[in-house]
Design a protein around this nucleic acid. Structure first.
Lengths: 226, 226
DNA sequence: TCCCGATGTTAGCGAGCGTTAACCGAGATG
DNA sequence: CATCTCGGTTAACGCTCGCTAACATCGGGA
């Protein structure tokens, strides 16, 4: 993932991509998606992916702009062609993660028929994310404070909405419990479900992802409904 | 919160600097009861307490040596009279936390009569620590990677021993389960129990500590025994 | 009482790093 | 084909910050 091409400057661009032979046709359908635009989008995504990994490994402060560039095959200040600064990279990661988590929760709750299935789906979806995007989860947990006030507020808002979906479902399952308690329980469940991204970097043989998934789902359900 | 030393948390980390890896349950520095020695120990403890709060708030990289000095009423390089460097402060915090957690677990397990009481006591002790030393828990979770290899290894060793106590108790309660699963469960329980230090800084009215304590203990037990 | 060592102080060095400036080559535009 | 845009390059600025040096002060053992 962090491998860089051999020739940064004098690359022969003819063999890089299976590009269309004649760009003379220009971009008909893409409103703003010319070939260049696509490459730009790809590079931006690559920077984000590499940044998530690096931030998770060494922490936001332990990664330099130069590192980010090198990880995607460009060097240093080229990153500024895609992001306003280092903080903007972090903000994009965190906002993307919060939005993905929230979107998934809303989709999943809409599709479920009853509260029990909703909760099971919420748990499954969260486990999916935690096991699939462990780096992002880690960064989300650790580096939220590094954001400037504006971006931090935005992310907090998305997170709050995510929590509220859980609280809604829980309050339908357990109307006897106060919302404050359910909120504490939801946060505790997040801590439980996010445990593997934290403990995964501790050496030692762990069960396969499939087994972990089952364990976490069972534990989350039992803890929330206890 | 950053200046008042009087805190309900009575964690007095023993000396960590010297090479001697004594049991360190009690401060050996108090042997020299001279006025100066006591003041030095106090200042060292004050620096550690302030550092834990500041590291939790802004992250290890976001706190300067100058900040640490200012927080205890001295300025800048005076900190070097008590610690070899910024990293040594973090190391002292993390090693102190791990050792306190481990010592408590061993004491608690020794006193319990049967595995069920052992697990309940382990959970209660961990909740005590998480609610009482939230700052330290946060730093422990986030900044372990900032340590140099030696100190990180030491802390990991302490943490590993702590986990093994949990796994031991769990395997006596559920001999049918593989150790690998029990280890995953223990880590998940830690994530659950450590959730309040993470979510506490999110605004919003939460239940009192007593109520949170009960909720977390119930959830941890249910998740582990499910 | 005298001197040593421990604990402060301020000044300043040196490295790292985020960011900007100036320039360059090629794809899109007309 | 002339030109403009844009994503890339290298050089360099300026700031922050960990850490060291040099000096002051004072408690406490001889």
């Amino acid at each position: 993932m962090a491998s860089s091409p051999a020739a940064p400057t004098a690359t022969a661009p003819a063999s890089v991509e299976p590009t269309a032979t004649a760009p003379t046709t220009v971009a008909p359908a893409s409103a703003s998606l010319t070939e260049r635009g696509r490459q730009k989008a790809d590079r931006r995504a690559a920077i984000l992916a590499a940044a998530a990994t690096l931030f998770a490994e060494r922490g936001y402060a332990g990664v330099t702009i130069e590192d980010l560039g090198t990880a995607v095959g460009v060097s240093g200040p080229a990153v500024y062609r895609h992001f306003a600064g280092k903080a903007a990279v972090l903000a994009a990661i965190l906002e993307g993660a919060s939005r993905a988590l929230l979107d998934g929760a809303e989709r999943v709750v809409d599709e479920a028929s009853d509260p029990e299935h909703s909760l099971r789906a919420l748990i499954a979806h969260h486990v999916d994310f935690a096991l699939g995007d462990a780096d992002v989860i880690l960064v989300q947990d650790r580096e939220l404070e590094q954001l400037d006030a504006g971006a931090r507020h935005d992310v907090r808002l998305l997170q709050r909405r995510y929590v509220e979906h859980w609280v809604d479902v829980l309050s339908r399952l357990r109307p006897d419990r106060a919302e404050a308690e359910l909120r504490v329980r939801a946060h505790a469940a997040f801590g439980l479900l996010n445990s593997t991204p934290h403990s995964a970097r501790i050496p030692g043989r762990r069960p396969a992802d499939g087994a972990v998934r089952g364990i976490l789902e069972e534990m989350a359900w039992a803890s929330l409904m206890s």
